[in-house]
Simulated scan of single mutants.
Amino acid sequence: MSRRQLVVDATTELIAAPPRLADDLFVVRAAVGDPGHLKAGLASAGAALRRVLMVPRQGAYAVTASLDGSRNFNRYDVEDLIGTLLGGAYHSRRDGSTPPAERSEWRVVLDGKTMWVALRPYDVPLHRRAWRQRTVVGSLHPPVAAAMARLAGLAAGQLVLDPFCGAGTVLLEAHAVQPRAAYLGSDLSSAAITAAQVNSAGTADVRWRVGDAARLSGPVDRILTNPPWDVRIGIGDLTPYQRQWRRVLRPDGLLVAILNHAQAAQLATAPGWRVRGVYDVAVAGRHPRIVVAARRPAR
């Protein structure tokens, strides 16, 4: 494991049915020592790769490189090196041009110890979802929503609520994790509800309604939600919403919410809640936390 990367011994089953939590997945085709920060080292790494890199038959393709640490070469130098080794219909991004839509994608990662060269076995990145036709401001990255659903421990027959549902990302990812539960999304924005309806077309057991997140009816088994993090729109203080969430949640229910640091701290000290887990994530250049909490029994 290194920055933004997890390397595993994979099975064909994993590749055929990849985890929804993965942002993307590539099959490693070669690995050599990290070339260091000099161009001479990069050239030596290229010579080493030439001896071990197995190149499958392919049409048009592009290469994307990621480099950790200071180097006296850039990502385009790495990408063009791999493109030269692979040969064929390589499309460089150096001049800012966009490769053709119908292409395979290679990924190169220099993590300070190893130079990984890998090929995506899918047509598009894993984080792209076929259901995602529309988004709204604040729509969550689907793999993060899938992680929230996993942390919720969903079970068949449960009723799952998202009081800030937006375009439906959290509940639609939860439905993919546990299709035998029922889902209800609420949002003040009618445009968001329309987007959620478009995204969930043909999906059973998912309902949407225009409504105030502070006026909920229950009981529900799980609350999964991504409330606004920006205090400028008046929802920095979640106390009124926390009271409503606790009122509608069953005694054995769980709240899983992605919050900014102030909101997470607020929930951790709220008298009606017991925090079970906190998970730091990176989303859209920011660093919120997924908080898992249960109702604290009344005294």
Rank of each mutant, 00 (worst) to 15 (best):
T169P: 02
G138K: 09
N74W: 12
A149C: 02
D23E: 13
G253K: 11
A293P: 00
G285L: 10
G211R: 13
V198P: 06
D205Y: 06
L67A: 07
K39W: 01
T194M: 02
V144N: 05
L161V: 07
H175V: 08
S189M: 03
G69P: 12
A40M: 12
R209V: 12
P19L: 00
D162M: 05
Q266K: 07
R50V: 10
N72S: 14
A284E: 09
R295H: 04
T203S: 15
R3Y: 11
P163R: 12
A89K: 09
Y279L: 07
V206I: 15
H127F: 11
L259C: 00
A191E: 15
T169A: 00
V32A: 08
G202D: 10
R299Y: 05
L216G: 12
T269W: 00
S190F: 05
G153S: 02
M115T: 02
L154T: 03
Q266P: 01
A176Q: 13
V55N: 11
A10G: 14
S92N: 06
L238N: 01
P121N: 07
H175Q: 12
L184N: 10
Q58I: 13
V177Y: 03
G138S: 08
L6V: 15
N72F: 09
A284V: 01
I193C: 11
R222F: 12
A182T: 14
V291N: 02
A174T: 10
R107D: 08
G211V: 04
A118W: 00
R94D: 07
T135N: 08
H261T: 11
R107W: 15
L172Q: 10
W131Q: 07
L154K: 08
G46E: 11
Q197L: 12
V7G: 08
A257G: 00
P125K: 12
G236V: 11
V283C: 06
V248W: 08
T114D: 15
Y122H: 00
W245K: 04
P297V: 02
I233H: 00
I15T: 06
S186T: 15
N199V: 03
G253H: 05
V7F: 13
Y183R: 06
P143A: 01
V7E: 12
R243M: 10
A284S: 13
V220G: 00
P228L: 04
D34E: 03
A101T: 12
L25D: 01
D95N: 15
A270G: 04
G46V: 05
R129T: 05
A152W: 07
E13D: 15
S2V: 13
D280G: 13
A265P: 00
M1A: 13
R243G: 07
G277V: 14
M148G: 01
N199I: 09
A257K: 09
G168I: 09
N199L: 01
Y61M: 02
G166A: 02
G59A: 09
A201G: 13
K113Q: 15
L267F: 01
V108E: 03
K113L: 14
L172A: 02
P121C: 04
A146Q: 05
R286N: 14
Y76V: 03
G211S: 14
Q178T: 15
Y241W: 13
